[in-house]
């Protein structure tokens, strides 16, 4: 029987499967990456068994002339299992380092078993070790990629959700709208906020719009630019814009940055802005005489 590059490795994986799984688990404990707080022993064991089974299958069919690629069809099982395992681990808060070390821990049991095989000559031993290293490294890199991809998806989803729930336009009074801005104001959000606002002005025939920036943490030139552009568009539509919620801190920053608000009215609190707005649409605020 010709000695293929993976014959010895396959031999180990197939003849001593549960032994490798146990030692892999053992190494994970030693390296401090087995999260007993997140996964029960039986859960970890089941995961490792599944991964190793898929890995063995890949090694058996997917390595041709010492070459392999985890993107090939032969490795499909491993990719599927990995996707599941990674998803679960991301969900439970495992770090990327722990995830990588977890996979790399597989090297130790394979090395010790190769070493114990007395019938291998030393040249062959080295090439076998090299093969194990390449296989497990590829495995670990692929794992990390899936792991990071999983996280990216979560971030993207959250970003999308934030964008959607962040721009309510509220009708405060007849013909008076307010737009409470919260968080950061980047270009994409500013655009969405502006379009939303202009549509509402048209729909409600609003005459005064109060843009409240109490919830905006910092105002830099970029943010100011977005605000003033929105105010200009509001004016072009025929409504008036008041920017409220300018804290003393923000006022100082704006002056230091040399931001000119032009003809846009600014107020420190939404309270004074509202009083102004009501006056502009023809209402008077009076205290009741009976008190």
């Amino acid at each position: 029987m010709p000695q293929t590059a993976t014959a010895n490795i396959l031999n180990i994986l197939e003849s001593d499967f549960s032994g490798v799984v146990e030692e892999w688990l053992g190494t994970q404990v030693k390296e401090g990456v087995k999260r007993s707080d997140l996964f029960s022993d039986s859960e970890s064991r089941a995961q490792n068994q599944e991964l190793l089974k898929a890995f063995t299958k890949g090694v058996r069919a997917g390595v041709v002339n010492e070459e392999f690629s985890l993107d090939d069809d032969e490795w499909e099982d491993l990719r599927a299992v990995l996707a599941d395992v990674s998803k679960e681990r991301v969900g439970r808060g495992v770090t990327p380092t722990e995830m990588a070390t977890f996979v790399l821990a597989l090297k130790a049991p394979l090395f010790t078993r190769l070493e114990a095989m007395t019938d291998i000559e030393s040249g062959k031993l080295i090439s076998d070790v090299l093969m194990v290293t390449r296989l497990v490294d590829a495995f670990a890199i692929y794992t990390n990629e899936i792991f990071i991809g999983e996280r990216d998806q979560i971030i993207e989803r959250q970003r999308q959700e934030m964008l959607e729930l962040s721009t309510p336009v509220v009708e405060l009074w007849d013909r008076v709208l307010t737009l409470p801005l919260i968080g950061t104001l980047d270009s994409a959000r500013a655009q969405e906020v502006m379009e939303n606002l202009l549509e509402t002005i048209l729909e409600r025939q609003a005459e005064v719009v109060i843009m409240d920036i109490t919830g905006v943490g910092t105002v830099d030139t970029q943010v100011a630019q977005h605000l003033l552009r929105a105010a200009a568009a509001v004016r072009l539509m025929g409504a008036e814009c008041i920017i409220s919620g300018i804290s003393p801190m923000i006022a100082q920053t704006m002056v230091q940055l040399g931001i000119d608000v032009g003809t846009v009215s600014t107020r420190s609190s939404i309270r004074t802005a509202l009083a102004d707005a009501l006056q502009k649409v023809g209402y008077v605020i009076k205290t009741s005489e009976v008190s």
């Binding site: 502006m194 202009l198 048209l202 609003a206 568009a233 539509m237 025929g238 409504a239």
Partner: peptide, 23 residues
Amino acid sequence: MRPAVAVTLVELGMYLPETRTAL
């Protein structure tokens, strides 16, 4: 003025300061 037109004018930097506007 329609919202889309207002957005375009602002993007073009034409704020029309010499005009008055009404709904």
